[in-house]
Write a protein that binds this DNA or RNA. Structure first.
Length: 572
RNA sequence: GCGCCCGUAGCUCAGUGGAUAGAGCGCCUGCCUCCGGAGCAGGAAGUCGGAGGUUCGAAUCCUCCCGGGCGCGCCA
């Protein structure tokens, strides 16, 4: 069961504001309202202040009062309470309250943000859960293609985000090393080794020949032996590909292992269902009655010839994870697996699990385009774009960014030609460049300013709150953007949406670049100004590194200086 | 036929109840004696697929329709 986390105050850069709003909103309306219920958002329009809240509109109806009247009461209350931390509070439109924060407030905010260093934005989970994330699980009968790359990038980033948010995650890869497809691989290898025709339903790809060539005396071996060796070779290649893609797994779980032993794990799982009265014999086959639990139809688990189905393996694997005591199971599946949701949820319930603790996350397709023409993928013909191909074309960082920047439930189009040609102008380079620039600037600031920035990153919030500096507009915007990170991480984790991190990283890089343009950092004049800006730069550097890290994209301290002989010139 | 996902700017896509709907790319106009110009500022460009409904307020929630993608085996 989930365990309570100690409550931390570190995340609350806006806690005083939330508390004040909640207190006075409750006083004005009598409706129960806490700091966590306050919605603070960044107004889209300039002139609407730093933050806006719709608290008055949310509560007015329930209190039977006019929204603007409630808003006025809140404004009066917080203006009094917050004093010089607030430099403006105005009521607008139907009852919005637009707030402008003072320099004092912003310096305190940066103190809280910056002192957290690389942990800023993390640890916000209310309860820690032990989560098993199963992803990729590509069949060991062929190379990983672009769809697997999206699955890998997503599952890995999701795992990182959940961990950063405060959960404990096990990453798992289910190896389908059992059944007819494995025999087909063996038969295909034998055919290639002997120069015979690849059998019906076999694998045609050039990689089969490569495997055959890598097995001494392959032509004289049995299909069974070649199946084992083929799976071994493909799994090794897949693991190498994943490592190269920056994806780590805690466990590769063998389907075959579920069939080993007496009784096997599969036997045991089916026995549990049988004794629970969940299995029924009909037409000499054993059925799991999933339809009564919302599935389209009932499912066969043991065929009339006595052989278990693939679904039976899934059940045994699910049972194994249940026995390992996870609070939650997540499965990242391809678009063609959405039909599994019903049967998997039904099975989870049949085992006595709470269906809310099983999540099937369906990845939509990656449509590969080359110069405006779709690149077809087909395992049968053996023509597909592998993960290795993709990485060769645009690199790991750009691959991961492109695959992660969109929601997992929307089909994305990836134009190889465009990605290749635009590689020097990708958003990912823009974000990485901002990080490198922050690092570079910090090498140029005075020793005194650097010591303030370093003290802040090291946890000393007071290093910056005491600086008597005026906060410029660009500094204000950057501080507020940094303040958003915990909420972004929380939303990204809650919605299983890594792309929100990518969107935020790009925004943060843009706001930082604007700050860099408007505010001279190194050698800035004025008492404490250089130190203040160095501290802001260091906090931004940390936040950029954090967000890139969550996506599995590197955050280089310096990048190749682009010049006339750069990638663009070469590509031409 | 049934089920799941999607439909937002020229293109690729953010935005799941708030104010005048955004970003990247592409296009147009400016800006390099300056901490890294892989940049910056400004501009053109949208009936948020359509029609109803709920709401003080809808791209967002509900219903129906249209269009696209993917599934629907005692295969794996």
């Amino acid at each position: 069961m989930p365990t309570e986390l100690p409550t931390t105050e570190a995340q609350g850069w806006d806690a005083t504001l939330r508390t004040a709003i909640a207190t006075h909103a409750k006083a004005a309306t009598g409706v129960p309202f806490g700091p966590g219920d306050v919605v603070l958002s960044a107004p889209k329009q300039a002139g609407h202040g730093d933050l806006a809240t719709n608290a008055a509109m949310m509560l007015a109806k329930r209190a039977g009062k006019a929204p603007r009247e409630v808003a006025q009461a809140i404004v009066d209350g917080i203006t009094e309470e917050l004093g010089d931390r607030l430099s403006g509070a105005e009521i607008a439109g139907p009852g919005f309250i637009n707030l402008t924060l003072s320099g004092t407030f912003l310096r305190e905010a940066l103190g809280i943000v910056g002192a957290a260093g690389r942990s800023w934005g993390g640890g916000g989970a209310r309860q820690t859960e032990r989560i098993n994330v199963e992803f990729v699980s590509a069949n060991p009968t062929g190379p990983m293609h672009v769809g697997h790359a999206r699955n890998a990038a997503y599952g890995d980033a999701l795992s990182r985000i959940l961990e950063f948010h405060g959960h404990v995650v096990d990453r798992e890869f289910y190896v389908n090393d059992f059944g007819s497809q494995v025999k087909n691989l063996g038969a295909s290898i034998l055919a290639r080794a002997t120069g015979a025709e690849v059998p019906e339903g076999g694998y045609q790809g050039a990689y089969v020949q490569e495997i055959a060539d890598g097995i001494p005396g392959a032509a004289d071996q049995s299909v069974e032996a070649l199946s084992d060796l083929g799976v071994e070779a493909m799994l090794a290649r897949t693991q190498g590909t994943l490592a190269g893609f920056g994806v780590r797994f805690d466990r590769f779980f063998s389907e075959r292992s579920l069939h080993a032993g007496e009784p096997s794990a599969l036997d045991s799982a089916l026995e549990i269902l049988r004794s629970n009265g969940e299995l029924e014999l009909e037409d000499e086959a054993w059925w799991l009655r999933t339809e009564k639990r919302g599935d389209d139809k009932d499912r066969v688990v043991v065929r009339s010839d006595g052989a278990p189905t693939y679904y039976a393996s899934d059940l045994a694997y699910m049972r194994d994870k249940l026995d390992r005591g996870y609070d939650r199971q997540m499965l990242v599946l391809g678009a063609d697996h959405h039909g599994y949701i019903g049967r998997m949820r039904a099975a989870f319930e049949a085992f006595g699990g709470d269906p809310d603790r099983l999540e099937l996350l369906i990845m939509q397709l990656v449509k590969l385009v080359e110069g405006g023409v779709e690149v077809k993928m087909s395992k049968r013909s053996g023509q597909f774009v592998t993960v290795e191909d993709l990485v060769d074309e645009i690199g790991v960082d750009a691959s991961r960014w492109f695959l992660l920047q969109r929601s997992h439930d929307t089909a994305v189009e990836l134009d190889l030609e465009l990605a290749r040609k635009a590689s020097s102008e990708n958003p990912v380079y823009y974000v990485q460049y901002a990080h490198a620039r922050a690092c570079s600037v910090l090498e140029k600031v005075s020793a005194q300013a650097l010591s303030v920035a370093t003290a802040l990153s090291g946890g000393d919030a007071g290093a910056v709150t005491g600086l008597a500096v005026t906060v410029e507009d660009a500094e204000r915007a950057l501080t507020l953007k940094l303040g958003e990170l915990p909420e972004v991480v929380a939303q990204s984790a809650a919605r299983r949406a890594p792309h929100r991190i990518a969107t935020y990283a790009l925004e943060l890089a843009q706001v930082f670049t604007a700050f860099y343009r408007d505010c001279q950092i190194a050698g800035a004049e004025g008492d404490g100004v250089e130190a203040w800006r160095a501290a802001l730069t260091a906090a931004t550097r940390d936040a950029l590194a954090t967000t890139l890290g969550l996506l599995g994209v590197t955050a280089p301290e310096r990048m190749e200086r682009r010049d006339e002989d750069g990638p663009e010139a070469e590509a031409a």
